[in-house]
Design a protein around this nucleic acid. Structure first.
Lengths: 223, 223
DNA sequence: GTCGGGATCATACTTACGTATGACGCGATC
DNA sequence: GATCGCGTCATACGTAAGTATGATCCCGAC
C-alpha cells in the first residue's frame, strides 16, 4: 500500500493484458499470437463498440488500436475512454495514416503510432513502453487514492484546519483565522494526524501537497 | 551570493523570440514576415551550425526547425540542444517527412510537426503553444533555481539536518542519528530555516521536496 | 600568528505542540 | 427521549521547538 514501489527494470507483467481493436480478423489473430508468445494476455475486439460494451479487468494493460475503425475514429476513442474511466495507454496502428493524424494522436498522449505493416519487434517494444507507462500511472494513482481515502474520513472542520496547518500557520493563527480557540484547533489537528496516518507534520505536508489541499498563501521568502 | 533571486511572478512575454532554422531562403523570409506580423522577434539561420555557433538571448522563445538540414538531422539536433543547455520547445517542419519521423520527433518532446506546405495559422498556433510551454517551463525552472540557490548557501551539516528534519524526524532523533547533541541540531535547524528563507516547517518541506533532498524513509502510515 | 567561519555543546528561558480529562451544546438517529 | 458524533472550550501537564548567551575547538586565510 504505502510500500515503496521498487522500479523494477523489467516490468513484471504478472498478468498484463493487451486489448486489441481491429476490424481485420487476420490482424487480430496475428497480434494475438504475437502477444501470447511473450506471455501477455489478450482481449480481441472487432470494433470500438464491442470494447466499450464489454467489462474489462482492472489490472495492468494497454490498448492497441487501429485508427480507422467502423463507427468511430480511433482518435475520437481516446476521449471516449477518458469519459469511461479507461486510462490504458494507447498504441495506434494504421494502414493509411498521414503525418497530421500521427501528430494529433501523439499530442493526445498516445504511446506510439505504427504504420502497417510494422515489424513484430516494433510492436512489442511499443507495448513494453506502454505497459511501463501504465504501471507508473497505476502506482501513482494507487498512492493518491490511498491518501484521498484517508482525507475523505476527515470532517469539514478537520479539513479546514489541515489546510491551514499544512500552509505553515501556527495553531493560534489558525484559531484566529477561523474563529476558534487554540485548544480546539489542537484537537482537530490531532485528529487530522491520526486519520491521515502520519506522525509528523512533514509527512502531513507531503500528503496535503499530493491532494492539493494546502491553503498555500505566499508570504514566505526574504533574505 | 546572498543575492535574493526574486522569482518574477508574471511571465510577460514582452519580446518572445522565434528561432527559425531552414536552408531555404524563401521559407526563412516567409516565416520571418509571418512571425513579425504578430509582434514576435525572430532569428534566422540557414543551418544548425549557424545556430549552435551563435549566442542566443535567454529570454522566452521557441525554435522552428526543418527536419532535413545540411549537416545534421533535425532530430539529432534535439539532443544537441539539450547538451548545450538550450531548452527551447521545438516545432518541426518537413517537406518530405514520414510517420515514423514525426512520431520520433513527438516522442522526443517536439511541440508539433508540420508538413510543408502548412497554413500560416497552423504555424502560429504551434508557436503559441510552444511559447506557452516555454513560459511554463521557465517559470518552474526559475522557481527551482531560486530554491537551489538558497540550498547552495547551506553547509554540509545544515543540509544533512535539513534532510532529516524534512523527513519528519524530531530534533533528538536527528541528533542521535548523526551523533550530535540536540542543541546543536537546533542551531543547524535554525540556520536552515533562515538561509532557506522560510518561517515554517511546512514551507521548508515543500522546498525540500522541490529539491528532492528529504531523507524520505517510509515508516509512516497506520490506520 | 591572528582572525573568522564552521562546528560543537551547555545553560536558560520562552513559546509551541500534543494529549488527557472533563464538560456543554447541537443535530441526527434509533 | 436517549444515544452518538461533532464541535466547542477549559485546565493541566509533559514534551518539542526556538532562541539567546557564552564557550571551546579546528582550520584555512590573511
Amino acid at each position: 500500500m504505502t510500500r515503496p514501489n521498487q522500479a523494477q527494470p523489467p516490468a513484471q507483467p504478472a498478468s498484463a493484458i493487451v486489448i486489441v481493436v481491429d476490424d481485420d480478423e487476420g490482424i487480430r489473430a496475428s497480434l494475438d499470437g504475437l502477444f501470447r508468445s511473450v506471455g501477455l494476455q489478450t482481449r480481441l475486439f472487432g470494433s470500438p463498440a464491442e470494447l466499450l460494451g464489454s467489462s474489462l479487468p482492472d489490472g495492468p494493460g494497454c490498448i492497441v488500436l487501429d485508427v480507422r475503425l467502423p463507427g468511430v475514429s480511433g482518435l475520437d476513442l481516446q476521449s471516449q475512454f477518458v469519459r469511461q474511466g479507461i486510462s490504458y495507454p494507447i498504441i495506434f496502428m494504421t494502414g493509411h495514416g498521414d503525418i497530421p493524424m500521427s501528430v494529433r494522436a501523439m499530442k493526445a498522449g498516445a504511446v506510439d503510432f505504427l504504420s502497417k505493416p510494422f515489424r513484430d519487434q516494433d510492436m512489442l517494444d511499443a507495448v513494453t513502453a506502454a505497459l511501463e507507462r501504465d504501471a507508473q500511472h497505476r502506482a501513482e494513482a494507487a498512492a493518491k487514492d490511498d491518501i484521498r481515502a484517508q482525507y475523505e474520513t476527515l470532517t469539514a472542520r478537520e479539513r479546514e484546519v489541515m489546510g491551514h496547518v499544512t500552509a505553515g500557520l501556527m495553531n493560534k493563527q489558525v484559531a484566529a483565522l477561523i474563529g476558534l480557540s487554540e485548544i480546539t484547533v489542537k484537537i482537530h489537528r490531532g485528529n487530522v494526524m491520526r486519520k491521515m496516518g502520519v506522525r509528523s507534520l512533514a509527512d502531513l505536508v507531503r500528503k496535503a501537497e499530493a491532494l492539493g489541499v494546502s491553503q498555500t498563501r505566499r508570504t514566505t521568502d526574504q533574505t
